[in-house]
Computed example of a mutant assay.
Amino acid sequence: MKVAGFAGFSGAGKTTLVEQLIACLRGRGLRVSVIKHAHHRFDIDHPGKDSWRHRQAGANEVLLASDMRLALLREYDQPHEPDVHTLLAQLDARADWVLIEGFKDAPLPKIEVWRAPASGQAPRPVLYPHDPFVVAVATDAPAGLPQPPRQPVLDLNAPAQVADWLLAHGARFDYSKESP
């Protein structure tokens, strides 16, 4: 399994790029999984549904399964930051690629997604100068980067080219919990 992180600040275009990369990689016959860092109390369940009622009744975990889909809902007793390695271990090991959106501090190879701030917005910070796990920068404004990156610069608006770059450098994304 190959694991590639996508990190950057809100509004940079991470979700759009990951969505496009899923289609590009699937179009090449690859199995793709995604881990997305979400904010606090997100929900995928709906009030009134059986699984929602089970959680409201106090179940710590509810596993939903059908002949086409599986979802596990787990409630934590105390808030804690999920460990990306624990999450990766829960995925189907048959995935060719796992794209991780968020988890910008995870010790995994990642592509930083950066857009120049709109007029009047504060400058957006960057990770690539000080994060040794940033292996490339995807941007639509390379001239606007606060400092020239030593990493390759990828065109944020060319997802097929980003997919080509991932595949060409696939060995650096081979996942092993022991050696990030």
Rank of each mutant, 00 (worst) to 15 (best):
D45S: 09
D45Y: 01
H46N: 04
P47S: 13
G48Y: 08
K49I: 05
K49R: 15
D50E: 15
D50A: 03
D50Q: 09
S51H: 09
S51W: 11
W52P: 02
R53N: 04
R53Y: 01
H54L: 01
R55Y: 01
R55L: 02
Q56D: 06
A57V: 01
G58E: 02
G58I: 01
G58A: 08
G58Y: 08
A59G: 07
N60P: 10
N60S: 07
N60E: 08
N60M: 07
N60V: 02
E61F: 09
V62A: 08
V62Y: 10
L64W: 08
L64H: 11
A65E: 07
A65D: 02
A65G: 07
S66F: 07
M68W: 12
R69H: 11
R69C: 04
R69P: 03
L70G: 05
L70E: 08
L70M: 12
L70A: 11
L70H: 02
A71S: 12
A71P: 05
L72A: 07
L73W: 00
L73Q: 01
R74W: 00
E75W: 06
Y76W: 05
D77N: 02
Q78C: 03
Q78P: 00
P79L: 10
P79S: 06
H80A: 13
H80L: 07
E81I: 14
P82T: 14
D83P: 11
D83R: 13
D83N: 14
T86G: 14
L87F: 13
L87M: 15
L88E: 04
A89V: 09
A89K: 11
A89W: 03
L91Y: 04
L91G: 12
L91W: 03
D92L: 13
D92N: 14
D92T: 02
D92M: 15
A93M: 11
A93P: 06
R94T: 12
R94Y: 00
A95C: 04
W97C: 00
V98C: 00
V98F: 00
L99E: 06
I100R: 07
I100T: 00
I100L: 09
I100S: 03
I100F: 06
E101T: 01
E101M: 06
E101P: 01
F103Q: 05
F103D: 03
F103N: 04
K104E: 15
K104I: 00
K104V: 00
D105F: 09
D105E: 13
D105I: 09
A106G: 03
P107R: 15
L108M: 07
P109R: 02
P109F: 02
K110E: 14
K110H: 11
K110L: 09
I111K: 07
E112Y: 10
V113A: 06
V113T: 12
R115K: 06
R115Q: 02
P117D: 07
S119N: 09
S119M: 11
S119G: 06
Q121I: 10
Q121K: 13
Q121P: 14
A122E: 10
